[in-house]
């Protein structure tokens, strides 16, 4: 009976959504003939050499929205990400994984191991190019970080967890790396304000390019290459935070179940 009621509710939900689309809830032309006015403003001001008041100096509209026009949103979203990782880590408090140096016999066949060794280099290169070019071509910190996080996971699966730890990617190292990334994001957010305080002129948190009432800002060009002020630094640090945050979780998921159960039993006996 309860299941039937639930099914009814879900069918009603689908019907209601269909009705909303059919009666013009998304505009009477589906899809619309032109973008909405807010989106048009974002598209025009993303890279606009003729209007230095609002521009983000980045040809990619998505990155300029993520880290400039709506930078505070993204900062708090990063905070949610950080808290979810911390919550997962706190469930594994006190669990220590043993070290092993004899790791040759573990993992998949030698063919796959060799191919993965080659591929890991390609993955890191692709991730770096996605993240560091994020203000010019599609990409950015989140994309680069998610891409880079697959490389340690692939090593963990193909070789073993112990091989990854022998490479130097231990839990504490990764936690430090993630903290450096988050610290970098914070520092970059305050950089324009610090420059403004030193130059004795008004400035804002999350300021990228100079504004009419706040003439300081980060340079859009270094030499001849466009770095779009703060956007390059945000992408760079975000990549480290995301990649290291995910890798530490995979490292904990890779601990064999028998070890954890043994440690839990010891802990229960102590109390």
């Amino acid at each position: 009976m309860r299941r039937l009621l639930g099914l009814l509710v879900i069918v009603l939900f689908i019907t209601l959504f269909a009705l909303v689309i059919a009666s013009g809830g998304l505009g009477y032309e589906v899809p619309p003939l032109r973008v909405r006015e807010l989106a048009r403003q974002f598209l025009i001001y993303a890279y606009n050499p003729f209007n230095t008041t609002f521009t983000a100096k980045s040809p990619e509209a998505v990155t300029s929205i993520v880290w400039d026009f709506r930078g505070l949103d993204t900062l708090f979203e990063t905070l949610v990400f950080y808290l979810a990782i911390i919550g997962a880590l706190s469930l594994y408090r006190g669990v220590e994984s043993e070290r092993r140096t004899e790791v040759i016999s573990l993992g998949l066949s030698p063919i796959v191991k060799t191919v993965t060794k080659v591929t890991t280099g390609i993955i890191i290169a692709v991730a770096a190019s996605i993240a560091l070019h994020g203000h010019l071509t599609p990409g950015g910190g989140f994309q680069g970080g998610a891409t880079a996080a697959v490389a340690p996971l692939l090593i963990l699966i193909v070789f073993s967890k112990y091989f990854l730890e022998n490479l130097g990617l231990r839990k504490n190292v990764l936690l430090a790396l993630r903290s450096i990334g988050l610290l970098g994001i914070g520092m970059t957010a305050f950089s324009a304000l610090i420059v403004g305080l030193m130059a004795n002129s008004p400035a804002y948190v999350f300021q990228n390019q100079p504004k009419p009432d706040a003439p300081v800002g980060l340079p859009a060009y270094i030499g001849d290459s466009l770095i779009s002020g703060t956007l390059w630094f945000f992408n760079f640090f975000e990549m480290f935070a995301v990649a290291a945050g995910f890798t530490v979780i995979f490292l904990l998921l890779g601990i064999p179940e028998g070890e954890i159960l043994k440690q839990l039993k010891e802990e229960a006996e102590e109390h």
Binding site: L108, S109, I111, V112, V115, T119
Partner: peptide, 8 residues
């Protein structure tokens, strides 16, 4: 990658 994946 394709041959390695099929092999595995």
């Amino acid at each position: 990658l394709a041959p390695a994946g099929s092999h595995a």
